[in-house]
């Protein structure tokens, strides 16, 4: 690789300089400030803040609702991808485009709209509450918002894999007399798992940090429906900068671990595939 490029292409110094300067100024320096600020706390104090009951409850809500939303999308994301790739129906292009709506629609707009729909006097909330299902102002509402926000990640990571799926395996399974359901379950689904998992990890990481769409519908009750990002702003508003940064670091660690797991997973599957090919 190196030998091939060494003599040829210009721009190494320029692009390296631009990247490092920009990355340093915009990302690294500010994040260093975060570490600097929480370093003003002693280890014991830091531990006391990040393991306070209210903080633990906030992680539980944040991680729990993000995982639940991820699970809902784990079912519906691949289903939507399957329907979009394999079926032909009127309006397919429209639905395909619409999948990215949560990505393009500002989160605050999503937040007030979902709240208006699911509140007990909203069109959906009224029906659900008649059946004893309270969504808005409960962790259920947070989950609904997170399902909305993280849906595109699952669909978009499974879709390309399905598009490039070789037909011969399915055909072989059919020739061998497997029923369609068996083929889907035993043959198609296993090839999708890496894509599904990486979509899930992305969706989960995104949902952990989500703020705009959640605060309107959450109810924001400490211990019950308060998410970690809100706890950060609440601490800030009490001039507790160090406390805010401590919670922020925990949240960051959570998303990093998720993305790291994703990268490892991808490395692993690439290696397994190339091993299988060899």
């Amino acid at each position: 690789m190196r030998a091939k490029h060494r003599h040829a292409l210009p721009g190494f110094g320029l692009t390296l300089g631009v990247c490092l300067a920009y990355l340093g100024l915009i990302v690294l320096l500010p994040l260093a400030a975060l570490a600097w600020k929480s370093a003003s706390l002693g280890a014991a104090e830091f531990w006391a803040i990040v393991t306070a009951p209210r903080a633990l409850a906030a992680y539980r809500v944040t991680f729990g609702c993000a995982a639940l939303a991820g699970l809902v999308n784990l079912v519906f994301g691949p289903l939507l991808a399957w329907v979009l790739v394999r079926y032909r129906f009127p309006g397919r292009a429209f639905v395909d485009a619409l999948i990215d709506l949560p990505f393009a629609l500002p989160t605050a707009v999503a937040g007030i709209t979902l709240t208006a729909l699911y509140a007990s006097n909203g069109p959906l909330g009224r029906v659900l509450e008649a059946h004893g299902w309270k969504i808005a102002y409960t962790p259920g509402g947070i989950t609904v918002a997170l399902v909305f926000v993280s849906l595109p990640f699952l669909v978009r990571s499974v879709q390309p894999v399905l598009e490039h799926l070789e037909p011969d395996v399915e055909e072989a399974a059919a020739t061998l007399g497997a029923g369609r359901l068996t083929t889907l379950w035993r043959v198609v689904l296993p090839t999708l798992w890496p894509a599904i998992l990486s979509g899930f990890a992305l969706a989960f990481a995104r949902a952990l940090g989500e703020y705009g769409s959640v605060i309107f519908i959450a109810g924001n009750m400490p211990m019950v429906s308060e998410i970690a990002p809100l706890l950060i702003t609440a601490k800030l508003d009490q001039y507790d900068y160090a406390g805010a940064t401590a919670i922020a670091l925990v949240l960051l660690a959570g998303s990093f671990a998720t993305l790291l797991a994703l990268n490892l997973l991808q490395l692993f599957t690439v290696r397994r595939r190339s091993a299988g090919a060899a």
């Binding site: 102002y137 605060i215 109810g219 924001n220 009750m221 400490p222 308060e226 809100l230 702003t233």
Partner: peptide, 9 residues
């Protein structure tokens, strides 16, 4: 506060 269902900011 046990009767409070929503705690806005």
């Amino acid at each position: 506060f046990r009767n409070v269902p929503v705690l806005d900011t």
